[in-house]
Amino acid sequence: MSDEAIDNPGLRIGTAPDSWGVWHADDPVQVPWERFLDEVVEAGYEWIELGPYGYLPTDPHRLEDELGKRGLKLSAGTVFTGFHKGEEQWQRAWDQALAVAGLASKLGAEHLVVIPDLWRSDVTGENLEPRTLTDEQWTKLAAGHDRLGKALLEEFGMKQQFHSHADSHVGTTREVLRFLDETDPRYTNLCLDTGHFAYYGGDNVKLIEDRPERIGYLHLKQVDPTLLFDVLKNDTSFVDAVADGIMIEPPNGIPELGPVIEAVAKIDPDIFAIVEQDMYGCDVDRPFPIAKRTREHIFGCTHLARIS
């Protein structure tokens, strides 16, 4: 635990390109990366995630300069995996890790957020594979993540934080608990995304209290509980649900962020809490005021939050 965390036991609150509608490395509808960095500072944050690899500069010296002149720091990068599909998925995952962890670790980031492949496309909304895994696929999934987590620690000194996700095979409470039961806490823990966990009815605070040793990282997000029932009833794809506004500006959704932050701060105040609000496809002028209001809301609903 850092000296700063001892003096201020609140979690470090950051943000990410996702809160600016960024899902892809290069997409003309997205906010340009320079504007994203400038608005992050203006909104009052110091910590950010890398976002999709290639959105921010990939040269470590240039990225260090761009962040440094704005007083920004990097908490994590992100990769995507499909270990349940078979052994051939290892090389795909490791190639991403070499690029993303290689860059992020040079800028001091100690976490790699790992998102599993979705069974339904986040581009077209079409079904790609069955919604549930066989026992054999669960075994492959767990083994692949433990192998990746071990390699990340040994090669980069980085910790793997697994991100359960809507339209993925690990989303419900039972699925998340099974994933934790079948993986090794030395190598695989959770990036608990509060919105995605609530998407399938998960109780974030209960999970934190029941499995405190497995919470390694937080994504702060709220889901619209009224719209959610329509999404689930009508089997709406996640990409279409996002377009409809399923992830909503706090404090208008669930879960309440204050109790989540306070529950995690009891575990370890060095855990990051990164604000996200899935808004892909939004107008470029929309994210900034939401990001600013969200930070103000978080600091108004709990004393266990800090900027740096």
Rank of each mutant, 00 (worst) to 15 (best):
E155D: 11
Q222M: 12
P28F: 02
V41G: 04
I208Y: 02
D224I: 07
A16E: 10
Q161M: 15
R293C: 09
A291R: 11
I267R: 06
E66V: 10
P9L: 00
L67V: 05
G258H: 01
T183N: 00
G281E: 11
L63M: 01
G71S: 03
V260H: 00
T294I: 07
K150P: 04
D26Y: 09
K140E: 13
E175K: 05
E4F: 10
T132A: 09
S168K: 06
N127V: 15
P255L: 12
V31F: 04
G258F: 03
L98C: 14
A5P: 01
Q277P: 08
F83E: 07
A16P: 00
N252R: 15
G171D: 04
R295A: 14
K140T: 13
I208N: 03
F162S: 04
D7V: 12
V242T: 12
N8D: 14
P255H: 05
H165E: 08
D27K: 09
M247T: 14
R178H: 01
P32V: 07
L56R: 02
S164H: 14
F162N: 06
D122H: 14
G201R: 08
V123W: 09
M1I: 05
W94Y: 11
D27S: 12
L228Q: 15
G82Y: 07
Q89N: 12
A16F: 01
V114Q: 02
D268A: 06
A241S: 14
D146I: 04
E209P: 04
F83L: 07
W20M: 00
